[in-house]
Design a protein around this nucleic acid. Structure first.
Lengths: 329, 329
DNA sequence: CACGGTCTTTACATCGTTGGAACGGCGATG
DNA sequence: CATCGCCGTTCCAACGATGTAAAGACCGTG
């Protein structure tokens, strides 16, 4: 692998002159510039990023900390973050926490200025005391109010309200919610939106209709739906806090010969790619994932240059996609 | 951020002695070792990986080149590769090619010893002439025979044969295939397996039953299925070259009120997480993805140490998961 | 022609780390 | 007691790049 030294020798100039050409420094004699460029071409020189960053005090990487790549929402988001980061010449390092506290602590511990310039976090179990980050960071989704970190995401309360209003507008009266969770702030906010919509319509809040989910995987949605269908008085609609829960719920419905949407309307949250292809296809809240990724990366780019203590809270748009799980075709 | 120098000053020893302690060098006086360890603790020292790797001539990264993270198979695989790489203290850099030749060329061009120690490739459109890699590499899936790169993956012919034999054993006679592709070698091999199974059973190879797919997304499967159902004599079973195609095909079947598996049996390939939760759930070929990830990383680890020109071809196990899309519950 | 100012190039130090040489101390050996 | 070898430590150089300062080239001016 060619280094600046090799190029310099070939071009007959000093190492620094080559460096100047590579970095677009203006004052290089045309003759030398030409020779250097030829030598660069001939050797196929590529800068050693490690060395460059060592000198510059940067690493060229940002971390993306998320629960698991096998969860479609995070996989899709990760792809978009990678694309957005490329525009700032950043490479993305993905750390999986598997949704555990230990996993998140490990991931955060491995982060530092020597490894990444900044971090994007999608924590699920983190507690306030864990936020001793040494690099600029943004959180996706929500977090407890008192954590001093910027945030990018949609308005979860409004989105959940929108989803439940949709069910109400279709005439449903007994609307369940799947995905309550003791420690997840997104869960709390979506639950709040659910309550808001019910209250608006004068519908009672029935606690047996709110089912917790420890993980947000398909299996959890399936289990929760079983519990709901076993009620003496089962719901006629269900709002799931993410699409995977909804897919699990619809699977259970199918197994029990409960027809969706005829006997049971289902709304999800996230708009995973697969949700458009299930049978029935899934009505869901669609956050603008590309906007989230871009906003997060741009915010970090701005902060990494000039550290700014102001906390940002970027609201990205969302929409409700009405599909077959709530409305018959 | 503390450096070796800071620790050394605090402990009252030379930088190199601290380095020796950090790297587990044996001959350090117990007294000094204790003082250094205390200083390490006090400063919260973490090695600067850039500097270390610069010195060691390694980067600490491997690249994972794949079409797109939003494709579940690759997302799941990426998660497993990250986990496997951690065992060798490697970080994973994910490059998306979006399945295009330009994308793949760009990804390969950005790879080099200065950035990564090795690379795992999942190419779709690459041609032989593009393989001018400067680091050890492994390919996942298949590749044209004459590319001099090691490979890890399942026996595609055998897996496809297994899938189609299953359909035949259920009594199906008119079995279609979705996913033929002019340039993808996996497609060619799966098609070969399809033909093998048909031939074994004395069934004719009917070319109108083999539908190409340019991408392997759900939409392509849906479109292909439409074409098949529009035939004068539609198939009674279909073997899809991946699960996404199968999901698309089942979606089309549902839209046309074709009952799966009663009117049409469907088999997929890859065993995506979602395939267990569709209605009906999808019978599919399940490659051992964890084994693929581990084998690929281990192979690279071995090669990165002592470059070895021998080409490896690691066969990983697979199994057929029979679910509702072929057998009524 | 000496001088000042602008361009152009170079030598050197530096980022944080590790490998290797060098060196001093110590006990064992002859 | 001189020598040897091992232990433990430090010093120095090096990885490949870039910032700084200073030196050299070149121009026009007085």
């Amino acid at each position: 692998m060619a280094t600046l030294k090799d190029v310099a020798r070939l071009a007959g100039v000093s190492v620094k002159t080559v460096s100047n050409v590579v970095n677009g420094y203006s004052f290089v004699k045309p003759d030398n510039r030409r020779r250097v460029e030829e030598a660069l071409e001939a050797t196929g020189y590529r800068p050693n990023l490690g060395a460059r960053n060592l000198r510059r005090g940067r690493t060229g990487f940002i971390a993306l900390v998320l629960p698991e790549l096998s969860i479609p929402y995070f996989a899709e988001l990760a792809g978009l973050v990678i694309t957005a980061a490329q525009e700032h010449e950043w490479n993305v390092l993905i750390e999986q926490t598997f949704g555990t506290l230990t996993g998140e602590r490990q991931a955060l511990a491995s982060l530092g200025p020597h490894l990444v310039d900044a971090a994007i976090l999608s924590p699920e179990a983190l507690h306030v005391e864990d936020f001793q980050l040494s690099v600029p960071a943004v959180m996706l989704g929500e977090h407890a109010v008192d954590v001093p970190i910027s945030r990018v995401g949609i308005d979860n309360v409004a989105a959940a309200t929108t989803a439940v209003r949709h069910l109400i507008s279709l005439g449903h009266k007994r609307i369940a919610a799947i995905g309550a969770h003791p420690h997840r702030s997104t869960a709390a906010l979506r639950l709040e939106g659910y309550r808001t919509a019910l209250a608006e319509a004068g519908l009672p809040f029935v606690s047996e209709l709110v089912v917790p989910a420890l993980n947000y995987h398909r299996a959890d949605g399936a289990a929760a739906m079983k519990a709901l269908l076993d009620l003496r008085n089962p719901p006629d609609a269900v709002f799931c806090f993410n699409d995977l829960l909804a897919v699990g719920a619809m699977r259970t419905a199918a197994e029990r010969f409960v027809r969706v949407p005829h006997d049971l309307a289902v709304v999800g949250f996230d708009n995973n790619d697969e949700s458009a292809y299930s049978s029935p296809s899934l009505t869901t809240i669609a956050p603008d994932k590309a906007a989230i990724a871009r906003a997060a990366v741009d915010l970090l780019h701005q902060r990494a240059g000039a550290p700014d203590v102001t906390l940002a809270d970027v609201q990205t748009p969302f929409s409700l996609l009405v599909r077959e799980s709530t409305v018959t075709r």
